[in-house]
């Protein structure tokens, strides 16, 4: 379960920006949450706090028994490696590695043997219907296919949380629906806690709970039923 207490994130610079302003949020295990809002409102920053990709300027971020805001780099790395899967808007696949090898990169920190890595990567690709493209480079895949591979990479380590930052942002409508369906399918099958950042209402419609963040301030637009 996620618990955010009075989380503030300010980016310093010539013009300091407060991306999160005293955000309080609790996300129970297994919930599918959509976070909406305008560009620059703080959606991605909030996701980065949840994903232990950054630390708040003040406040607490807890994931289960781990205080992400106060943990050291080693512990944060462990959390990212074991508990959190993340999918990016731009897919962020490694261009020089094949689809299977990209999925395997998520298993490298878990010290899994090479043979087991390959096997689990193939199974993950099968679960997203990409097994036949295992040895293709990202440049040889369509946008939707690359996002499928990215989802496989996020889920291969069997995380407790799946974070998706605009997962359909770069996809056409048809592909968007495919990816959305895939995410919902995995959420149901693996009992994941899913947090999706999106500016697409169609994507947010499938969520149990909808939040909106503007100018760093979070409020609930649809509570979980």
């Amino acid at each position: 379960m996620y618990t955010l207490t009075n989380v503030t994130k300010t980016y310093s610079g010539r013009h300091p920006v407060t991306a999160l302003d005293h955000v309080n949020l609790t996300i129970p295990d297994g919930q599918l949450v959509a976070i909406e809002g305008p560009t620059g409102g703080g959606k991605s920053t909030l996701l980065q706090m949840l994903g232990a990709l950054d630390v708040p300027s003040s406040g607490d971020v807890e994931l289960g028994d781990v205080q992400l805001a106060r943990a050291g780099e080693r512990q944060l790395t462990k959390v990212r490696a074991e508990r959190i899967g993340i999918v990016f808007q731009n897919f962020n696949l490694i261009a020089t590695l094949s689809a299977q090898e990209n999925v395997e990169t998520a298993l490298v920190p878990l010290h899994v043997s090479a043979a087991e890595r390959r096997e689990r990567a193939m199974k993950a690709l099968e679960s997203v219907n990409m097994a036949d493209r295992a040895d293709h480079l990202p440049s040889e895949l369509s946008g939707g296919q690359q996002q499928r591979v990215a989802i496989a990479r996020a889920l291969v380590k069997k995380p407790r949380v799946l974070l998706a930052d605009e997962p359909t942002g770069n996809l056409d409508v048809g592909t968007r629906d495919e990816i959305l369906e895939l995410l919902l399918e995995r959420w149901r099958a693996d009992s994941l806690t899913v947090v999706m950042v999106t500016h697409d209402p169609r994507v947010a419609e499938g969520a149990q709970r909808r939040l909106r963040i503007e100018h760093g301030t979070l409020h609930e637009t649809m509570a979980a039923g």
Partner: peptide, 16 residues
């Protein structure tokens, strides 16, 4: 930079 950021976000440590 993006590649290394991605790898770190999926759990690669600094020494790795």
């Amino acid at each position: 930079t993006r590649d290394f950021g991605t790898l770190k976000s999926i759990g690669w440590s600094n020494p790795r």
